[in-house]
Simulated assay, not measured.
Amino acid sequence: MTSAPSVTYVRFESPQRHERGHFPGVFALANGLARAGRLTAAQQRFWRAGNDWFDAAYPTPDAAFYDPERYPGAVSWFKSTATHLIERVPGHLELLAAHGVPCREVRSADPGRVIYEDEVQVVVVPHG
């Protein structure tokens, strides 16, 4: 009898905690650069096109899943099977690197308590 393959989850995040205690993800970091007006015109075009592509490519979980009172520390993770999404992240990593913003890849078979799930991602409240 063979066991079902386990899903590994992938997240791209800052190695430094945000003031709310969690590690901001790659999109939050890139969005922060854009909001701060730090992107060049070419970077701004890349960022906008990238965000539009990701917004069209997969569902955006309801903002209620990120409510810090109800779901403290909730963050999104890609399922490792979502290769069509993960393979597009390096462009965002390059954008961050150009501004000296560190971002790391983290993998886990059990990133936390799942509060939202679809075909390509989960939103979890991290364990303890």
Rank of each mutant, 00 (worst) to 15 (best):
M1D: 06
T2H: 09
A4R: 12
P5V: 15
S6Q: 14
T8N: 07
T8Q: 09
T8H: 06
T8W: 04
F12T: 02
E13W: 01
E13L: 10
S14W: 11
P15F: 09
Q16T: 08
R17E: 09
R17T: 11
H18S: 08
E19Y: 13
E19S: 14
E19P: 07
R20N: 09
R20S: 07
G21H: 04
H22P: 00
F23K: 01
F23V: 01
P24K: 12
P24V: 11
G25P: 02
V26Y: 04
F27K: 01
F27V: 08
A28W: 05
L29T: 03
L29Y: 04
L29M: 10
N31W: 11
G32V: 10
L33I: 13
L33G: 04
A36C: 07
R38H: 10
R38Q: 14
R38A: 15
L39G: 05
A42W: 09
A42C: 08
A42D: 15
Q43Y: 08
R48L: 15
R48V: 15
W53P: 04
W53R: 08
W53H: 08
D55A: 15
A56V: 11
A57T: 15
Y58Q: 11
P59Y: 10
T60G: 10
T60C: 14
A63Y: 05
A64V: 14
Y66V: 05
Y66W: 12
P68F: 00
E69D: 11
R70E: 00
Y71T: 00
G73S: 10
A74W: 00
S76P: 07
W77T: 05
W77E: 03
F78P: 01
K79M: 14
K79H: 12
K79W: 09
S80W: 04
S80T: 01
A82S: 13
I86D: 03
I86L: 12
E87A: 13
P90N: 07
H92K: 06
L93F: 02
E94W: 08
L95Q: 01
L95Y: 05
L95S: 03
L96K: 06
A97G: 13
H99G: 11
H99I: 15
H99K: 12
V101P: 03
P102T: 10
C103A: 12
R104E: 09
E105V: 15
V106W: 05
S108F: 03
A109P: 05
P111F: 02
P111N: 03
G112A: 02
G112I: 00
G112C: 03
R113P: 01
R113D: 08
V114Y: 05
V114C: 08
V114W: 04
V114M: 07
V120M: 09
Q121F: 08
Q121C: 12
V122Y: 00
V122W: 00
V123G: 02
V124F: 03
V125L: 02
V125R: 00
P126Q: 10
G128T: 07
